[in-house]
Amino acid sequence: MSDERLPLGYSNDLIFELEKAFYDERGKGARFRTTTVGQRYFRARCLPRLASSEIGEILGTVAGALKSDGIAADVSWVDEERLLRIRVEGCVHRAVEENMLASGVEPFTCIPANLMVLALEEKLDRPVELAEIKLEEGACALLLVVFDKRPTLG
């Protein structure tokens, strides 16, 4: 089965079932064990393109990869100093989050969000936390917190 022929519904159902099984095992703590999911894609498709250390350009680079690879139709954001409000429209994984909600579980993993967190942490060397994933009409609203500095490790 080639990449092109793999049905999206099949892939998303598998992701949903894996996430749900993990949530059933780990509860709300599952969220913190999936913070790096997407890192192989990040290293292959985003990291080589990341040149700038400016937040807008970092997010723009990740958004460009997501759009050119057909993962999301559009990504926009509002920078409120420590808070980043991000809208992801037309995400191919939207059905996963909808299935989670239908199962009574608040969505806890978002691949586009993880990619942006990985990119920001890589280029800014600042900790970033995904605080919220909200499903809105036609888009997912993400809230990221960007911290001032990494804890000093000596």
Binding site: E129, L130, A131, L143, V145, F147, T152, G154
Partner: peptide
């Protein structure tokens, strides 16, 4: 120990701040 304290504090700070802003 100092480094482990920093890692622990950093993690807690991230998670609790996320809880606070929401």
């Amino acid at each position: 120990r100092k480094k482990m304290g920093a890692i622990a504090g950093g993690g807690s700070g991230r998670r609790f701040t996320a809880e606070f802003v929401t």
